[in-house]
Write a protein that binds this DNA or RNA. Structure first.
Length: 465
RNA sequence: GGCGGCAUAGCCAAGUGGUAAGGCACGGGUCUGCAAAACCCUUAUCCCCCGGUUCGAAUCCGGGUGCCGCCUCCA
């Protein structure tokens, strides 16, 4: 069957077929680096990181490129406000981006090109568009003429006619048509600028992605992705630029993630309801945030609240607890019984996981299969005699699924200091002698230090709160 | 005005023709010295509303209601 994914371009789920064998070229629109990222920015980072890792799990080699917009109006304004140089500010937030997304288990792209490092390619791209008659210069600006590109609107399924009715024209703009967009903007007095055939200036927002895709991935790529709001106009404009110049399809599959909402409203600066990753991970573990996001389908809108994060934390702990319990029993079980119903059931769950994930990266269903497997494992753990091999099969499969989604299915093993170890020993003795007062005293004392004790038929265990 | 999305239990969330996954929370039970963890049971006769198609629809069609987004920088 293979992988099927929803293509915004055709508005259908399609069988995924890369251009070249098992090689996948993937481009994800990255952030404008003028602030710390908010959880809305985190969603595409997490979701497409999951897509990448799942493709790799399924045997594809993914070449993943994601840009940094490191010069534009927002950055210039932020730099002005903070009295900082544009490149310094951009660099600072690029590093912050890596820290925040790293905490969310997002793997760095193979390449993270920046606008400021792609200037020659951007300029020659624009020159070529002018030569082909798709763009025109106007007093130091260069605009793309949308009317000259026949397919304009195909991604967002809008007609040029309808778009024009809704378009706003700002006073003083130099473009000929309301829908035309800037490829190059002439510099204002004192602004950071690059030399070009049209004078000093800087690129418009959309051209960078077209230039970077062409430079690093080629004229046609497999997957181009980003947030839903980028479909129009950003991706529409990218298509216009790239396909006008290359006369080839820019990307075979366009993927767009749904929005994060707060109280069912879009997160935005004007509403003042945005949550920075930098802040939220002080209170909630980034692993929980990742798990939370993957618990719903990437295209659905996703409401965000701290209560939902708390609930997700409990869910994730259910998995981690089971893995812990499997590990404990594994240590003290003998190795026999590789085959049989339990082993078959484990295998079956793995296949179901793949089946669900193959269907448009349905991580919500993938995770529910993981919970089914956890339940099965817990049932197995109720048995009086367990086999090391079966326990290993459970552990392997849970870890494998965990890795495919890159969610944290197990907690790090720690070593307790001798004093605490001694107290646990003392409590075991106390319980043997039915001195429950002392036993409870020790348990309460350790709880204050964040250590939870559990008495099982196989002995006393501990875990961190 | 144009384009698009969403509406499923207290909460979150799958499911796009075959008779409602999964998680959190709640209640009852088992286990336990008591707990914790886990297991078992219970929890939507029903999927925003009204029509229609069908042997059969949460799922398809028509109409309506509510909410959200894009069309301006935005993940």
């Amino acid at each position: 069957m293979g992988i099927r994914l929803y293509n915004t371009l055709t508005r259908r789920k399609e069988t995924f077929q890369p251009l070249s064998g098992r090689e996948v070229k993937m481009y994800v629109c990255g952030p404008t680096v003028y602030n710390y990222i908010h959880i809305g920015n985190a969603r595409p980072a997490i979701v497409f990181d999951m897509v990448r890792k799942y493709l790799e799990y399924r045997g594809y080699n993914v070449f993943y490129v994601s840009n940094f917009t490191d010069v534009d109006d927002k950055i210039i304004n932020a730099a002005k406000e903070l009295g900082e140089e544009v490149p310094v500010l951009a660099e600072r937030f690029i590093q912050a981006y890596f820290e925040d997304t790293g905490a969310l288990r997002v793997e760095a792209a193979d390449l993270h090109p920046r606008v400021t490092e792609t200037m020659p390619e951007i300029i020659s791209f624009i020159e070529a568009l002018i030569d082909k008659g798709y763009a025109y210069e106007a007093e130091g600006d260069v605009y793309f003429s949308t009317q000259s590109f026949e397919d304009y609107g195909k991604l967002s399924s809008q007609s040029i006619h309808d778009l024009q009715l809704g378009a706003r024209i700002e006073v003083g703009e130099k473009k000929k048509n309301a829908l035309d967009f800037a490829l190059w903007k002439a510099a204002k007095e004192g602004e950071i600028a690059w030399k070009s055939p049209w004078g000093y200036g800087r690129p418009g927002w959309h051209i960078e992605c077209s230039a970077m895709v062409k430079k690093y991935l080629g004229d046609t790529i497999d997957i181009h992705a980003g947030g839903q709001d980028l479909a129009f106009p950003h991706h529409e404009n990218e298509i216009a630029q790239s396909e006008a110049l290359n006369e080839q399809k820019m990307a075979n599959y366009w993927m767009h993630n749904g929005y994060i909402q707060i109280d069912n409203e879009k997160m935005s600066k004007s509403l003042g309801n945005f949550v920075l990753v930098h802040d939220i991970i002080q209170k909630h573990s980034p692993e929980v945030i990742r798990f939370f996001m993957l618990q719903s389908h990437y295209r659905s809108p996703l409401n965000f609240s701290e209560e939902l994060l708390d609930s997700a934390k409990n869910s994730l702990e259910r998995i981690q607890t089971t893995v812990n319990n499997l590990k404990h029993r594994h240590k003290e079980s003998a190795g026999f019984g590789k085959a049989g119903q339990w082993a078959e059931a484990v295998q079956q769950h793995k296949h179901t996981f793949i089946q669900e994930m193959d269907d448009d990266f349905n991580s919500a269903n993938g995770i529910s299969v993981l919970f089914d497997l956890v339940k099965l494992a817990n049932r197995y753990l109720q048995e009086n005699h367990t086999s090391k091999d079966i326990l290993q099969a459970f552990l392997d499969t849970i870890r494998e699924i965990g890795k495919a989604l890159d969610i944290k299915v197990e907690t790090a093993e720690e070593i307790l200091d001798e004093e605490i170890e001694g107290l646990i020993e003392e409590r075991v003795e106390a319980r043997k002698n039915r001195n429950f007062a002392r036993a409870d005293e020790i348990r309460d004392h350790l709880k204050e230090q964040g250590i939870i004790l559990e008495d099982t038929p196989q002995g006393t265990r501990w875990k961190r709160e």
